[in-house]
Design a protein around this nucleic acid. Sequence first.
DNA 1: CGCTTCATTATGTATAGACAAAAGAGGACG
DNA 2: CGTCCTCTTTTGTCTATACATAATGAAGCG
Lengths: 241, 241
Amino acid sequence: MDATPLPRYLEIRRDIQNRIASGELRPGDAIPSENELKERYGCSRMTVSKALSALVSEGLIQRRRRAGSQVALPRNAQTVLKIHDLKAEIATSGRAYRCEILARERRAPDANELARLGQPVTELLALRLVHFADGQPYAVENRLMNLAVVPDAANVDFSETPPGTWLLNEVPWSDAEHIIRADIAAPALARRLAMPKGGACLVIDRRTWQAGVIVTAVTLHYPAARHQIVSHFSPGAGFSA
Amino acid sequence: MDATPLPRYLEIRRDIQNRIASGELRPGDAIPSENELKERYGCSRMTVSKALSALVSEGLIQRRRRAGSQVALPRNAQTVLKIHDLKAEIATSGRAYRCEILARERRAPDANELARLGQPVTELLALRLVHFADGQPYAVENRLMNLAVVPDAANVDFSETPPGTWLLNEVPWSDAEHIIRADIAAPALARRLAMPKGGACLVIDRRTWQAGVIVTAVTLHYPAARHQIVSHFSPGAGFSA
DNA sequence: CGCTTCATTATGTATAGACAAAAGAGGACG
DNA sequence: CGTCCTCTTTTGTCTATACATAATGAAGCG
């Protein structure tokens, strides 16, 4: 069915993937050496090597010099979680996006904020806003931005392009951390999110760094009734979430 | 400080990573062609190609024939979420693990369960259990296992090795899906988890497939006060969560 | 029996060269 | 002015070869 046939190294990779998935090769089993495989598939060792290297970076097999290649022991469940840009997330679902800035302050961090940032920061921009989808509250965002890293942020009006979207397009990040938790909405928060008092929230804390320096720390509160995180992972192909 | 210097292709890869992280190369900027790079770094084209291919699979750059290579547009926040084996998770934190099986049934699925599984299954093993850490309830698990894929499960006593741990070591999976949400604990659940009535739960639904066939569907309820999901992602190096 | 030493084997890295395929650039032509 | 065609650049794949490096297993020795 393929108009253009797969390149050899992908064919080999897929073949071995299939043998593992089907149970023909079980965890711990040895995989033939590159020299054997190069004869079996009728290609050069480099091509086999490329296929096996891909399987290593997938985590499907392990390789050691002289000892050869083995099917890796089953991994821990590991899935890729892709948290979309909020504006894009709402827009692509066909709903109208809007956000409302509740507070905006430029100042030095207090003790609590320093703890959130995890490293000393001299000046920050603190934002508090609500995101709406089709007029309905979608999430409340509480963001700290390190002005030492993104001084431009001080001059941007975030009512059109929310800070998350702006940062994503402005600053490449090198590290990210997420903490996902659940909580009961405080009365004021429940009101803002148009959810029942005492209802559950999904809370996401995200921090991103660039070359070791913190760029931003953000806390998002979603009403549990209207939001969940879905993530899909298949080692063989690509990711989606 | 490196006893053994990095291989050339990793050096090149890291150099370009640094240029992107430092802002010297901005999203959309062109990266010199392989022929130019091979002269700059004084190596063969294959070596440059290997470095650039790695950057592609990291998502840092894009490449098109004839058009050349560009720094990719900033990605959506994407992080690897690794959900540990519960028993190992508790044990490695130095607490005593124990689990209690509340219900165990071998039968055909009902309509509700079929919907959860997402595909027809003739016979399943349904388990309901509580995990304890140092005697304190840690999570309530609700699991369906497809006996067509794992017939052995019918003969295993899961009181020692909980089903999640057993499956992880027994069956390699090829696809996984997680749904993370928050909810208010129902009274019976709150009692089981020794948490206040009306308190929030973190809920994880996980489904795993092997070669397109569903292996297991599990729902985990954690008391929000005592559990959160932490995940860390740095594109350059490895993952951890 | 335990230790060292050495040869063997498989992987890891690197090279030079070759051809294929995609796609932009520019020219010919209607 | 637009369309089709060819030329050229750049990446994608593949080969054959070479040497480096890690780890194993066997031989030799105290």
